[in-house]
């Protein structure tokens, strides 16, 4: 028996955070009955019903393993809660290709008060989809954005992860540890998109952290991107740079045309989902990538992701 999606969606819309776990269970489910209910849930939180974009600031945080993401997220969590923001974190972990199972270890490293009902942390496995966000993560982020003030999507990787996360986040922060040469090389070579914010962790390491920060700033300048801020953060006591990072993230969003970015993200995500579902062959059946983009571009901005994918599927026949 499936939970009542529309009711859960309505509760989230009313910012009832207690509805979030059950809503996520539904959104993650592939059972046919659940899929229908999940669609109903998401409809309740679509721009059309909300009368605009969901109010949360959706932030993607990504970076290589060991860069210090969990520690950074702990520090951010405390800073946001100190400012009275409710926070949902979606931590995406890779799955084992061998067993299909996964070890979701991150939440153990994020320090939070279990009695604080203004915080939700949910780990999800990336699932069978290669290199990407969990199938349900975008939908989950979209739903939680109707209820929480801040929604964080944490992913692991460099080069691909920030592109995927950009399909849902308003602001993408890439986390680099001192001496982390990959990010610098990937930026210069154009393998990775330029993120909205770059964070150098472990600033307590001193010189090496400063040098990394300087190198990244220089690379950005040479790429002609002055908008991206590079910040150094130390999460160890005495913590430093965390408030500045919170300010920088907020400043990025304040500058942003949220409606436009979300709309572009939804359309791009719809095309990605459609291609995963139907392949290149399916894409040709609807007249190719450009035609699909045109169809999506003409769609009602109030439609949610599922509706956009459905629209593309209708044009297949």
């Amino acid at each position: 028996m499936s939970a009542d999606g529309a009711a859960l969606g309505a509760r989230l819309r009313e910012r009832d955070l207690g509805a979030a776990p059950a809503a996520l269970n539904l959104i993650e489910s592939t059972a046919p009955g659940d899929r229908e209910q999940a669609a109903a849930l998401l409809r309740e939180l679509s721009p059309a019903v909300l009368g605009g974009e969901a109010p949360a600031h959706v932030i993607g945080v990504t970076g290589p393993p060991g860069a210090g993401k969990s520690t950074l997220l702990s520090a951010l969590l405390h800073a946001w809660r100190a400012r009275g923001r409710t926070v949902a974190m979606l931590a995406v972990d890779p799955s084992s290709r061998r067993s299909g199972g996964s070890l979701l270890g991150d939440r153990a490293r994020i320090d939070f008060d279990p009695a604080d009902s203004g915080v939700l942390i949910r780990s999800t496995a990336a699932g069978e989809r290669l290199g990407g966000l969990a199938r349900a993560t975008r939908a989950a982020a979209g739903a939680l954005a109707g209820a929480f003030d801040v929604v964080v999507i944490e992913t692991v990787g460099v080069g691909q992860a920030e592109t995927e996360v950009a399909e849902v986040a308003d602001t993408v922060a890439v986390v680099v540890q001192p001496g982390g040469g990959d990010v610098l090389q990937f930026l210069k070579a154009g393998i990775m998109e330029i993120p909205d914010v770059l964070v150098v962790t472990k600033a307590d390491l001193g010189q090496i952290a400063l040098r990394t920060r300087r190198d990244l700033s220089a690379a950005l300048r040479s790429l002609g991107s002055s908008a991206t801020q590079v910040l150094a953060v130390s999460s160890l006591p005495p913590a430093s740079g965390v408030d500045e990072l919170v300010d920088a993230l907020e400043a990025h969003r304040a500058e942003l045309d949220v409606a436009e970015r979300r709309l572009a993200a939804r359309r791009s995500a719809a095309l990605t989902d459609f291609t995963i579902e139907h392949g290149e062959q399916g894409l040709r059946a609807i007249g190719g990538r450009a035609a699909a983009q045109a169809t999506l571009g003409a769609a009602d901005p109030g439609l949610d992701l599922a509706a956009l994918v459905a629209m593309l599927e209708r044009s297949m026949s």
């Binding site: 776990p21 993650e28 979701l104 270890g105 939440r107 153990a108 279990p114 942390i121």
Partner: peptide, 23 residues
Amino acid sequence: MDVVYEGIRLTPAQIAASALQEG
């Protein structure tokens, strides 16, 4: 299976919050 490994030194409240949030 998907495994949420929480490690050591957990209070009952932490375990309950995790079980709920993680579904």
